[in-house]
Structures are given as structure tokens and as C-alpha cells.
Simulated assay, not measured.
Amino acid sequence: MLEEFKEFAMRGNVIDLAVGVIIGAAFGKIVTSLVEDVIMPPLGLLLGGLDFSDFFVTLRGDGEYPTLAAARAAGAVTLNYGVFITIVIQFLIVAFAIFMVVKQINRLKREQPKPPEAPREEVVLLGEIRDALKAGPSRS
């Protein structure tokens, strides 16, 4: 059983999957930072200084809360649609990046037209025999 597991774990597909998961996790952190630290602050400024992460609706709690953190600290139940908007933007960026990578891989994989192959030796020999038969008997 240990030998079977070793054979399974050392297959190329399993290793490729592990590398993909690790790189994907790192890429996810980069995209999260890009959205939260680079894209959302200017977008919030364009919308009048709003912070998307503080877009929420209080479903149960006593009073108005200035921020989502304050509502959570007070134990209020909230519907956090601003966080959802941020995550959707992150998803769109990741999906676009993956689309671009797959598009490039597909472009590289497209088969290039192969140059015509030289005829095999047997085909050349058969062609010579055919031509000799068409020419008729030769006089030597």
C-alpha cells in the first residue's frame, strides 16, 4: 500500500496540481492586495470617500454603526454587501488573469503547418518503376 501511495504521489499530475495550488494561493493574496490596497481606495474616493468594506445593512442590532467593525464589535447581525462587491472584483481580476494565461497557452499550442515530408524511399522506387513501365521496353 505504501508503494502504491508513493507511485500515486510521484505522478506528474499530482505534482503539477500541488504546484498549481501553491501558486494559486500566492496569486490570490496578490490580487486581494491589489483590490483592497490599490483599486478600491481610489474608487472609494471617486464615490465621495466611501469605503466599500463599510457598505452593510444592519439586520439585527441596537442603533446605527459607523463602520462594519463597530457593528461586529457590538454583536450586530449585518448584511455585508460591500465586502461582497470587493470579492466579486477580486474574482473578476483572477478570472481575467487566468483567461489571459490560458489564451497564451492555447496560442502556443496551435499546430503550426508542417512542411511537406519527403516521399519515402519505397514510394520513390515505385514511381520510377511506374515511369519505366509507361515508357515501354528499353533497348540495350
Rank of each mutant, 00 (worst) to 15 (best):
M1P: 09
L2Q: 06
E3A: 11
F5S: 08
A9H: 03
R11I: 08
G12W: 13
G12H: 13
N13L: 12
V14K: 04
I15V: 11
I15Q: 13
D16F: 00
A18Q: 07
G20S: 13
G20Y: 04
V21Q: 02
I23M: 11
I23A: 14
G24R: 08
G24Y: 00
A25K: 07
G28N: 07
I30N: 00
S33Y: 08
L34P: 04
L34E: 03
V35F: 00
D37Y: 01
V38G: 02
M40K: 05
P41H: 05
P41C: 05
P42A: 03
G44M: 02
L46G: 11
L46D: 06
G49P: 07
G49E: 07
L50W: 08
D51A: 07
S53V: 02
D54M: 01
F55E: 01
F56M: 05
F56P: 03
V57Q: 01
L59S: 04
G61A: 06
G61L: 03
D62M: 04
D62T: 08
E64R: 13
P66G: 00
L68S: 06
L68K: 08
A73T: 13
A74V: 04
A76N: 01
A76L: 02
A76P: 00
T78I: 10
N80I: 01
N80Q: 10
N80L: 04
Y81R: 02
G82Y: 04
F84E: 11
F84V: 15
I85D: 10
I85Y: 09
T86K: 12
V88G: 11
I89C: 10
I89A: 13
I89R: 03
Q90N: 13
F91P: 01
L92Q: 00
L92R: 03
L92G: 01
I93F: 14
V94D: 12
F96V: 06
F96R: 12
I98S: 14
F99R: 10
F99I: 07
M100N: 14
M100C: 13
V102K: 10
N106K: 11
N106Q: 10
R107P: 00
L108F: 12
Q112G: 10
K114M: 14
K114F: 14
P116Q: 11
A118W: 02
P119S: 14
R120P: 13
R120I: 14
R120A: 15
R120K: 14
E121W: 09
E121R: 14
E121G: 15
E122K: 12
E122D: 15
E122A: 12
V123E: 15
L126A: 15
G127Y: 09
R130Y: 03
L133R: 07
A135F: 09
G136C: 05
G136K: 09
R139W: 14
S140C: 04
